[in-house]
Amino acid sequence: MTESKAPGAQSSYEARKPQTRGRTRENTPLRHNFWVDLKELIAIPDVASRLKPPPKTNKRLGLRKTAWCVFHQVVGHNIRNCLALGFQLDELVRGNFLKDYLQEPQGALTTAAPTEDQGHEVPIHGEINTIAGGFSGGCTVSQRKKYAKGVMIVETQGLDLTLEPDLVFTKTNLRDVVSHDNDPVVISMVTTGRKVHHILMDQGSSTDVMFWLTFNKLQLSLDQVRPYVGCLYDFAGYQVEVRGNIQLCTTFTSDAASRTANIKYLVINAPSAYNILLDRPALNRIRAVASSRHMKMKLPSLEGIVIPMKSNQKDSKRCYENSLKTKRGVCSVTIQPPGED
């Protein structure tokens, strides 16, 4: 039986600290609805005297840079999703100290729904970004600085979406899909009068890649290759041999329609189970959207017709298995600039 305490007396309990960081019932406080705002509730002298203030810190506690927690007096999460305050208020409700401020009856308590802010008690020491390279943003330091500054400029001119249809994936697109374990989307396309298979929809790099073996199979001339300044490195830090870049007319076709676009490929000499890697530059240029769940890629034709391109699941699995056998598969590349202009 809980003993009542005199008003203003300091509570002797310590706030419960969750032992694990997983979203379980044990480390998630019960959410109570109060008829006063939480900021006003913790400011009431009788309530404030029973709360244990958290230790002060200058670190951001959470993922949201603009959210402010009145209880912690730091940014990172809001007071509604504050775990430390939630546990203490839960204890006070169980001790029958906040019955005059509750909206719901005592038996109607529910576990708070997990939110992305529930990991806010882990201090954020820094941020890790992805590596990138290729043509996006330029090849030199000054070009990339100009590109980075342009990110802060709000574009006022809208895109011309007059003939662009909605690219939607529905349940009907799953009818011809064999159940898979996160298979990559691998398609075929036509370039220089030849149909090229084993094209990976990568979306993880900022450059479109053609491998040297594919370049030779297409019987392309070295006169078409333009020099590329800079060095490329794979994810493990090994240097990748760059032969240059080439721009080719590439056609994406299906029974519905087709679309041709000029795509600039970076030609590299490295082992790969794929012939070409299509990444963000090409996909954005043709306005394509790929779905690994539906094993398809869709893009609009110039006439406004949706072009569905189905991934070959047998080729997808075969390429993935072969990529694991290569000694140094190219997973991602980054650029080392030669210097300023």
Rank of each mutant, 00 (worst) to 15 (best):
Leu30Ser: 11
Tyr320Asn: 10
Val333Phe: 01
Pro300Cys: 12
Glu91Asn: 15
Leu161Tyr: 02
Leu41Pro: 13
Ile307His: 02
Val70Ser: 11
Arg287Val: 11
Ala132Ile: 13
Pro184Cys: 07
Asn216Glu: 09
Glu241Arg: 14
Gly86Gln: 07
Gln103Pro: 06
Val122Arg: 13
Leu266Val: 02
Leu266Gly: 00
Pro54Trp: 00
Leu283Gly: 04
Gly126Glu: 11
Thr207Tyr: 00
Ser291Val: 12
Ser179Cys: 04
Glu241Lys: 15
Val240His: 00
Val333Ala: 00
Gln106Ala: 13
Ser272Gly: 09
Leu213Cys: 13
Ala132Pro: 11
Leu200Tyr: 10
Thr115Leu: 09
Asp208Leu: 01
Lys327Met: 10
His77Ser: 08
Lys327Phe: 04
Leu324Val: 08
Ile246Phe: 05
Thr156Leu: 15
Met201Pro: 10
Val178Phe: 06
Val178Pro: 07
Lys65Gly: 05
His32Thr: 11
Asp255Asn: 14
Pro55Met: 02
Ala9Pro: 05
His77Cys: 12
Ser179Ile: 07
Thr66Tyr: 01
Ile187Gln: 00
Leu222Cys: 10
Leu161Phe: 03
Leu38Trp: 06
Asn245Ser: 14
Ser258Asp: 04
Val185Cys: 11
Phe169Ser: 05
Pro281Val: 08
Lys327Ala: 08
Leu220Thr: 04
Thr214Asp: 06
Val267Lys: 01
Glu155Gln: 13
Leu159Gln: 08
Ile124Asp: 06
Lys146Val: 08
Gln313Asn: 02
Ala9Thr: 14
Tyr265Ile: 02
Gly133Thr: 02
Ala108Glu: 15
Asp117Gln: 10
Asn58Met: 05
Lys59Asn: 12
Gln143Phe: 04
Leu98Asn: 09
Phe71Trp: 08
Gly107Leu: 12
Ser136Met: 04
Phe169His: 04
Trp68Thr: 09
Ala290Leu: 10
Ser12Asn: 15
Asn173Trp: 12
Val75Ala: 06
Val93Thr: 12
Thr251Trp: 02
Pro45Gly: 02
Pro227Ala: 05
Ala261Phe: 00
Thr24Cys: 09
Glu127His: 08
Val177Phe: 03
Ser136Glu: 04
Ala84Ser: 10
Trp212Lys: 06
Ile128Ala: 11
Cys249Pro: 14
Met295Ile: 09
Arg259Ser: 08
Met297Asn: 02
Arg226Val: 14
Asn27Arg: 05
Thr260Gln: 06
His294Val: 14
Ile305Pro: 00
Glu14Arg: 14
Gln10Lys: 15
Ile335Leu: 15
Gly158Lys: 08
Ala15Met: 13
Glu3Arg: 11
Gln10Tyr: 07
Gln118Cys: 13
His180Leu: 07
Pro271Leu: 00
Leu63His: 04
Ser206Met: 05
Glu14Trp: 04
Gln88Asp: 06
Pro105Leu: 03
Glu164Leu: 07
His72Glu: 08
Thr156Gly: 10
Asn182Phe: 10
Ser49Thr: 14
Gln143Cys: 09
Ile128His: 06
Ala270Met: 01
Asn216Phe: 00
Val151His: 03
Ala43Gln: 12
Ala270Asn: 00
Val141Tyr: 06
